[in-house]
């Protein structure tokens, strides 16, 4: 029928979603969105700092584009930082790794040395969406999106990762753990951009792990997430530990009682029991479409035990 015949190329007035040119009355775009891809970080900072309306950094885009598509945000400016040289590299530095702001999740997953050193961080990265999503998504974006359920943030915080932030006042280093400020919010100021995230050198006899609970095996948002990073002495006793919980409060939590429960132990049953209790006690979750309050509290304890054991086994090279 006509509809099929008319599909011949060259014989078409194509459907133009959002391409209206002179047809829009006020002239130009209906949405007023501006896209810039500055060549330097300084230029990017200036663009963000001078923006009048909502301005967003565009790195992987896997959150920003979805939020635009579902009409949650209507930015005036997108600053694409992917054309800025030097941001798309994983560089060994002081025994650790500096991960540029535009490095994709898949690039991290494919980096053998990074995976071997910080397997718990990679546990988290692997859980960010599908392979397709990880082909674009970045950990800097995962952090700056401000979701309490972001999968890479608890293991980064537990690892003691530090973000290098460039802004109108210059450069500052800030612990990843200090950046989240609540759902959709961060402690970054106007015009500030995370330039890179630094994962420090790993201590001897240490290991990290991250797990989350979701009803599906993949393609889901954490109902609870737990990251553990711990260091042992030569006899297998935990000498230091960081335990970070995700999706159980407006921001990630690092309850001191969780670390205290396992430091000085070999993760004996009593220690794990205490860890689980401390994790559950620290939760301040909400009831929502992804899980009930009660369920989150229980599962936080369950996961804390499991993840601590996994990190411990990694530290002892069992797993």
């Amino acid at each position: 029928m006509l509809l099929q015949a008319a599909r011949e190329k060259g014989n078409l007035a194509k459907i133009r979603r959002a391409t209206v040119g002179g047809d829009t009355g006020q002239g130009g775009s209906m949405t007023g969105l501006r896209y810039e891809s500055p060549p330097t970080l300084d230029a990017a900072v200036a663009l963000l700092n001078n923006a009048k309306g909502l301005a967003r950094v565009l790195a992987g885009g896997t959150d920003v584009i979805v939020q635009m598509e579902t009409d949650l945000i209507e930015p005036e400016l997108l600053v694409d930082i992917k054309k800025i040289p030097g941001l798309r590299t994983i560089v060994a530095e002081n025994g650790g790794f500096r991960i540029g702001a535009t490095v994709s999740g898949m690039e991290m997953v494919e980096h053998a040395a990074l995976c071997a050193t910080w397997p718990g961080v990679i546990d988290g990265v692997k859980l960010i969406g599908s392979i397709q999503v990880k082909g674009r998504a970045t950990i800097a974006g995962n952090l700056c999106n401000g979701s309490p359920a972001a999968d890479s943030v608890p293991p980064l915080a537990a690892a003691g990762a530090v973000a290098r932030v460039i802004g109108p006042q210059g450069t500052r280093e800030i612990a990843v753990a200090k950046i989240p400020a609540g759902p959709g919010k961060t402690h970054l100021g106007k015009g500030e951009i995370v330039e890179s995230i630094f994962l420090p050198a790993r201590a001897k006899h240490s290991g990290d792990a991250y797990e989350r609970f979701t009803p599906r095996t993949e393609m889901d948002i954490a109902v609870v997430g737990v990251a553990v990073n711990l260091t042992l002495d030569t006899s297998g006793v935990v000498i230091s530990a960081r335990v970070v919980l995700g999706a159980v409060a407006p921001t990630i939590l690092e309850p001191a009682d969780c670390a205290k429960a396992i430091v000085g132990t070999r993760l004996e049953e009593a220690a794990l029991e205490q860890l689980a209790a401390a994790a559950s006690a620290a939760c301040r979750p909400i009831d929502d479409k992804r899980g009930t309050r009660e369920f989150r509290v229980t599962v936080a304890g369950v996961l804390a035990r499991r993840v601590a054991q996994k990190a411990y086994d990694r530290a002892r090279h069992i797993a």
Binding site: G61, V133, R136
Partner: peptide
């Protein structure tokens, strides 16, 4: 060379 969702990439990128 990278598998992506084309709905999560802006055309300008």
């Amino acid at each position: 060379g990278r598998l992506v969702c084309s709905c999560l990439v802006l055309a300008v990128e």
